[in-house]
Structures are given as structure tokens and as C-alpha cells.
Design a protein around this nucleic acid. Sequence first.
DNA 1: GCGGAAAATTTGATCGATCAAATTTGTGCG
DNA 2: CGCACAAATTTGATCGATCAAATTTTCCGC
Lengths: 390, 390
Amino acid sequence: MSRPTLASLASELVVSRQTISNVLNAPHKVKPATRARVQAAIAAAGYRPSAAARQLRTQRSMNLGMRLLPATDGINGAVLDRFLHALTEAAQSAGYRLTLFCADSDGDEIRQYEELLDVAGLDGFILTSSTPDDARTLWLQERGTPFAVFGRPWDAAGHPAAAAHPWVDVDGAAGTTAAVEMLLAQGHSRIGFLGWFTGDPVGADRRRGWERAMATAGYGEDVRGLGVEAQDTVAGGASGAALLVSRGATAMVCSSDSLALGAMEKLRELRAGSSVSGQAAGLNGPGGLSAVVGFDNTPVAAALGLSSVAQPAEEAARHIIRVLAYELAGGGSLAATDAVGVDAGAAPAAPAPPERQLLLAPHVVERIPLPLAATGSSQGPTAAPSMQPR
Amino acid sequence: MSRPTLASLASELVVSRQTISNVLNAPHKVKPATRARVQAAIAAAGYRPSAAARQLRTQRSMNLGMRLLPATDGINGAVLDRFLHALTEAAQSAGYRLTLFCADSDGDEIRQYEELLDVAGLDGFILTSSTPDDARTLWLQERGTPFAVFGRPWDAAGHPAAAAHPWVDVDGAAGTTAAVEMLLAQGHSRIGFLGWFTGDPVGADRRRGWERAMATAGYGEDVRGLGVEAQDTVAGGASGAALLVSRGATAMVCSSDSLALGAMEKLRELRAGSSVSGQAAGLNGPGGLSAVVGFDNTPVAAALGLSSVAQPAEEAARHIIRVLAYELAGGGSLAATDAVGVDAGAAPAAPAPPERQLLLAPHVVERIPLPLAATGSSQGPTAAPSMQPR
DNA sequence: GCGGAAAATTTGATCGATCAAATTTGTGCG
DNA sequence: CGCACAAATTTGATCGATCAAATTTTCCGC
């Protein structure tokens, strides 16, 4: 037998299509006895409603779209990777499917939205990364398409902006603040900041966290000169670290793991260079090598024993789906009014709407740099005789 | 006006639905004059056929599915990331959409196939990674679902197996062979192999490439003891490298960048330990640090100046789509006979069917290890005065 | 046992496209 | 001119579900 349909199942069961449909979509409308009988038949026949037919009628595809950004660094892009995994999983368990697409530019991305909405009837989009005065969010809002953004809205000046759409972001400043606090606890006081060039708001935000923490600790005055910017690469990190050291820094918080990796290597090199007792250039602070903290907690950081600020990408993804699903389920129709002083109405215990805009706190993963001692790890290496030749 | 449909456009143009449909799907059936008029109207109205309606009628969704594997290492997983990007892009330009899904196990993956086929009507699947006697490929073949695999089929013994389904893979042995040749050219002769524990066929294949190249170069005898296996981590690479060095290796080819990274660090450490003139333990072969070659050409390798074997992931992705699209377009109906001596028939110049099974050759990216000299890269670092406080 | 409202179920129309067959228009030629 | 036949276009049915309204069944009190 080929795939069962509502009609085929109905005639078999001697009930109408609609009754079966109701069992699936509005069970309370069906008499318990019938319901049980139908459910049994559905399970037995392995019936699954066709999404295409359903979509044609209901105009909902249960399909969400997300642009796959052109891989930038690959070292830092790892966060989006984790995000994508978690997003797929969350979407799936919320009953949505996830469609990927590529775009050459933000303009092209909008063109893709249009196409995907018209042709595939996607129900909503997830945007990753937000730019100041984002054209995409404007377009989507005008058109009334549901969407949620991983990344705060920024105004043209690079400051957090107010926006009506849902978003989730990670509080970068809180991350660098926590990193500074960790270093302070280790006994450091001349803690530098190593950021990237591109004047984007994310970098500025991370820098602010460092400034704030230093000021709070009473080192606000010393900060001048300890904030440095370089290209967001390993090489850039190395030269930036050299500059910071020359200015007396004994520790540094970096905007990325690429930078931190370069910094760590450079510190190691400087320490090796300054002879055995490397107290020379102010190196060897209390924490030794771990005086470098990266950002994003990339696999590389984990592999090399680099401390790093970890973004809760999985939690962000789950929340994005939660919000989007809520909007798509019509939750937005009531929640349109800002959630301030909404006490009247006495709604019948709706399942507390998710925060439409959420800032998550990252945490610092403290690591001890790879010792590289000859002692093997859990399982030591073994010589293996050549296997099958040829 | 809301979205135009065939019917709305038809009445506007005073032609029938079917004529418009034909203009889109079988232009040759429509008189040139009419065709032009309809095409203009389509463009003007921005008409786009609904995929759901089309799918309902044609039973084709133009949608491909792919499982997103649970992120393993993150360092080595980068290849799949590039693959996914290229795949999305290729699918898109072939007119297909890509749907992602997650699964807990291979068994669950099959369950997902079933669901996605029934509910969403996916036209085919892309599998990444293949296991010996893969249950998924068997299931898909039995069911007659089109699919293509990134990875060769292996038999239970871990040897390449014959299979009827399309696949693309990268020739790992050729990669390690090329790596050995590069090292030979640098003057090395005691070249070790550093693989991973898990007895999977991919690792064995890469090892065979090393063995073959060494034998060809006349060092077949020496190989004994120079093949070592460890955990596929940075720490594992370090300890494996130590062992290889103790056996007299001056260079080594690794199965992954994780291993190579550990090896590189260990070599650096050993070299530093053996005083200034580190000729001691047979270190400092002709190629110096670059005597380590990794596999997968991960961003980390690029960042750290580690030579590595690069998989043509993008090309693999494009070919996978090419093959799958060909099958889905009905190309398989003729190509069922093996492409050996098919000279008869004299087909009317069909656009040469793509190879159903293709082994791509990787290439070695030779790099000079990060010097970490204080001289800044292209753009040097600059001190930046504190930005907006608070 | 009966009227009438509520509950349960069924029927016909519809979403927007393509297929298959029917119909109309156009062309060549004796 | 008119016939046969091909080209171009149109019509009706269909894919598989849900919606809205019509219909039948059930239940209750009097």
C-alpha cells in the first residue's frame, strides 16, 4: 500500500475525513470512543499528514529560514556553528523545520526572504548578527514577517538601540567584566584589553566591559594606554600583545580567541626570550600564562588550554525558537502592548510569554595552559605495527 | 493586492491558467507572441508559483535533507562546515532548498528520514560520513529514495566496498602520500605517521597513503615503529610526537590538525629543551618546524602556520548536488547500467552524466610556522584612547 | 415520549498548482 | 474551398489537507 491519506484512512474506518482531522487538530471535538479508535488506526497505518496539503490550506509551512553566513574566520565562526546546531534541534522539537539559504549581501538576503516567503511560504526567519540600522529587520517588520535576531539592535552610533522585534544576545561587556574580575582575583592589576579594528558595536561593547571593571576595581586611571586594537587574527594578537606588554600589562582580555591565541604565543615567546628568570619586562604575572583570556570559547581555546569567555549559544538558540514559536502561535496579538503594568484582563493562566528581548550572561571558562608534558593523557600512545600494506 | 496566483494572473491577462503554467514549464508549447506577453505580465506582477501547491500536484518538493551531525571536536569538524556552506549554495543554484535536521543516532536518523519523506516530502538526502555496512544507505536504497553520500562505502573489514549509490569522497591516502612527498622533497627520510585510535576506515586509509609513499621512496623497511596512534586530541598529538621523536623520526604526517597541533607544540618544546644547538634527539630536520603536516587544513592550521592536507570540501559539495540533481531529474533511469562500454545507443547529446562515484584528490598546503616576530603584520596595532566610558 | 439545545459527525468548497483530455485555431495542399 | 492534421489553448479533475456550514446523534428535563 502506498502512503495513507486522510481519505483512504477515512473510508477504511468508515468515518469522515474531517473527524480524523479533528482527532489530530482538535481532539476535544471528538467523542472519546471515536477518538481512541481513530488514534489506533492512525498509529497502525502510520498515517502522517502531508505538510504540503496542510500548508496549501492553512498558509503556514511550519518552516523557518536562516541565512548561512559566508564562513569568516572559522576560528571565531565556531559560535555560530554551535548556535546552528542548537537551533536546528530546538526548531525540530517545536515542530518546525529549518531551511538554510545563502546570500551574497544583506540586500541579496532581503531578495531571498522575498523569494522564500512567496515560493516556500516560510513562516519566519532567524537572523544572526545585526548591523547598526539593520535594513533587513526594517524590511521584515514592514512586511509583517515574524523573525527573531541573535544580536542586539544597534543605532548608527554603535550604541544599543530600542527595537520592537524580538532578539536574544549575549552580554559581551559582562563577559569581559567577568574576565577582568578573574584576573584581578589572580592578583593582576595591569590588565590590558586587546580588541579588533573593525569599529563594530560588538567590539566596542566588549571593550566597555573591560573599562567598567577596571574602573570599579579602582584602576580607572591606569587604563589609558592599556586598550589596544589590532587585526582580528593570530598575527594581530601577537603584535598587539607585544605592545601591551611594552606598556606594562601583565594580563590581557581579548575580543576573540584568534587574538588571544596570538597573544598567548607572543607571551610565551617573550618569556622564553627574557632568559630563565623572566621577570624582565613585567612578564610572569601571578597567573603565569593564563594571564590571557579569549572570547567565544572556541575549540581551539579548549585544545590549547586558553581561558575564554563562553557564549551560551545553545541557550540563545533555544530562546530564539521559543520566542518565534510564541509569536507564530499568535502570542504576539495580545503581547503587542508593552509588558508594563499589564495586570488587568486576568488572562486564564496562559503559559507566561517568553521575554521578547533577552540579554544572556556569558561565563568565563578558566583553563590552565597546555603543559605539553611528555606524560601521556588518559590513554597514552602506542606503537602499532603497520597494518595492511598496499 | 495580495500575492498573485495562476488564476488571478490568468483572468487579468485573459488567458487560461494552463497557458501561464506552460510558459513556465514547457515554453515551447506556447506561441512566441503569447509567451512574451505572459512573461512580461509575470515579471510585472512578480508572480512566483507556490511550492506547496506544486508539490501537492507533482509530488516533488525540490527540497533536500541533511542531518547536522552533533559537533564532535570543532577543530576537525570545520571541514563539514565548509561542506555545508558549499552544499547550501550549490543546492540553491540548482533550484533546491536544503532542510536541516538532527538525530541522536543512526537509527534515529532513519526515523527522521521516514518522517521527513512522509510529512515534508523531501526529494532526497545528503549523508555525511559513512560507516562500514551503513544501515542508512541500505534503508534508503530499499525504499528507493534518492541520496548521495560524502564518504566512500566501506565494508565491515574497513576496506573500500562496492556500492550502487552515488558518493563523493576525498582520497585520504593520496593526501598523506602527497604530504610524505613534500617532506621527502624537503630532505626528510625518517617520516612518521601519527594517527588516531578509533579503528575507523578513514584513519586506516590515511595511514595506507603514508605506508605506500614510504615504500615507494625505498624506506619501506624503516617504517616499522614509525607509525603511531593516539587519541585524536592536541594532548594525544603531543605524546604521540614524543614517541615518534624517540624513535628517530624527524618529520611526521598526522591524521588530523588536532594531532598535528599537539605534535608541533611538542616539537617546539623538545627543541627548546635541547639547548640552543638542538641537534640532540634528531630534531631540527631539514624543514625545521614545518616537519609536521596536519590534515583537513583547519582554520587553526592556517592561523598557526601549520602545513596541512586540504580537502576540497566545496568541490565535493558541488558534485554531490550535481549527481543528486541528475538522479532526481530522471538521469538514473538510463544510467542504471554501469558506465562501462556504453557506446551503443547513440543518445541525442545528453549533457554528459556526472560521475556517480568520485574520488577527489586533496592537496597539501605548505606553510611556514608562525614566526611570531614582533614586526606587526599588514596593519600594526595602535593604541586607542578609551572610548565612551560607562 | 418529546421538544430543543448541545455534541458529534459529515458534506461541499477551497487553497494553487499540474495533468490529461477536449476544444479551438492555424496551416498545407489537393 | 474544404479537408486532414498539427499547433495552440482551454477545460475539468486532482493532489491532500482544513474551513465553514449542514446534518445527524445524543442527552436532558418535563
